[in-house]
């Protein structure tokens, strides 16, 4: 579906030198990025502000032309066949609207039908589906400028799907939404992916990834730091897990094999045992614990996804002390 090889993008940035002189320097926003996305996948693309996420997305969708490397999306070169590609993919930008702000959603959708040359029975069917799943009916006739952000985003997603794209690219789709709207949108996107639409989404909200994307790509300073299933990245980056046990009566625990740290709370009723995956398993540790004390309840806590990503960033900034200039367009 997506094939990216040694993708590179530079920008010339002017900086003021004195009152009238200007100096131009080249900054690299995306540097030697390669990845593939297969049909039907759902990939989360994360990184801090200015990491090169948006620049990558813009090159994938044909807005920006790469400085070097190749991109193929759906078998099409985005830079050269922009209009061709536009018919085949759907794009949602969380912070910029693609709807007509003073037209009702219904009219915007009708216009999009003619722009994308969708025949009216297909259009009608898909619109009905979206209206149904995203509950658009109550505000279909409201001008876009009067919609709440959550309502507008649902409209944006519908607008991007009416021409039945095989790939949906979402740039920060949940930004600024309240919890309920976020959840509703995630549910819809998950269903969409189950029915075969490929998803690529950038986000700051890692819950989006947790809910939607089995695969995670992390980018910083223009290069991909990590790419793989979320579970694997977790294991790789955070070798420790935590076992939380609640006891029937307050007790101190004896030293246990493989446990690196014990934190107790509630006066000794609850203990957090940090252990290394390499040295013991959760099962072995639990067996060991119940031999010593009477356990009321227990849980194994995976490190938070935020923590995984934070550690990934930290790993690279420690490795590369001289950070290159990166801009995010």
């Amino acid at each position: 579906m997506i094939e990216v090889r040694q993708l590179r993008r530079e920008f010339r940035v002017a900086s003021k030198k004195g009152r009238f002189r200007r100096e131009y320097k080249t900054v690299v926003a995306v540097d030697d990025v390669s990845f593939d996305v297969a049909a039907g996948e759902a990939v989360g693309y994360v990184g801090p502000n200015g990491a090169g996420k948006s620049t990558t997305i813009k090159m994938l969708t044909g807005i920006l032309v790469p400085t070097g490397g190749t991109v193929r999306v759906n078998g099409v070169d985005p830079a050269r066949q922009r209009k061709e590609l536009a018919r085949r993919i759907g794009v949602v930008f969380g912070q910029r609207s693609q709807l007509w702000w003073d037209l009702p959603l219904r009219d915007s959708f009708a216009l999009l039908r003619s722009i994308y040359r969708v025949n009216s029975s297909d259009h009608g069917k898909r619109l009905e589906e979206c209206v149904d799943l995203l509950e658009l009916a109550p505000f279909l006739d409201t001008p876009v400028r009067q919609l709440s952000l959550g309502q507008r985003m649902r409209g944006e997603v519908t607008a991007a799907l009416l021409h039945a794209p095989e790939l949906l690219v979402l740039d920060e789709p949940t930004i600024g939404l309240d919890l309920e709207s976020k959840e509703r949108l995630r549910e819809f996107l998950a269903g969409l992916n189950r029915r075969g639409t490929t998803l690529l989404l950038t986000t700051h909200d890692l819950d989006d990834i947790e809910r939607l994307c089995p695969r995670l790509m992390v980018i910083d300073h223009g290069t991909v730091l990590a790419d793989g299933p979320l579970a694997e990245l977790r294991a790789e980056v955070t070798p420790e897990r935590v076992l939380v046990i609640d006891l029937r009566e307050p007790l101190n625990l004896p030293p246990l094999p493989g446990v690196t740290e014990v934190r107790s709370e509630a006066g000794g009723l609850r203990h957090h045992l940090t252990f290394r995956r390499a040295e013991t398993t959760a099962a072995a540790l639990i067996t060991e614990v119940v031999r010593h004390v009477e356990v009321h309840d227990l849980a194994v806590v995976e490190p938070e996804i935020d923590d995984v990503v934070r550690r990934l960033y930290a790993r690279t900034s420690a490795a590369t002390d001289s950070t290159p200039d990166v801009v995010d367009l």
Binding site: G62, K83, A86, F93, Q98, I115
Partner: peptide
Amino acid sequence: RSGTFDAVLLRPLGTLPQMMST
């Protein structure tokens, strides 16, 4: 500045006729 021009580029139509008609 607002990035709306990117949305124009995302549609399967020429940019100038879109700008003129929108």
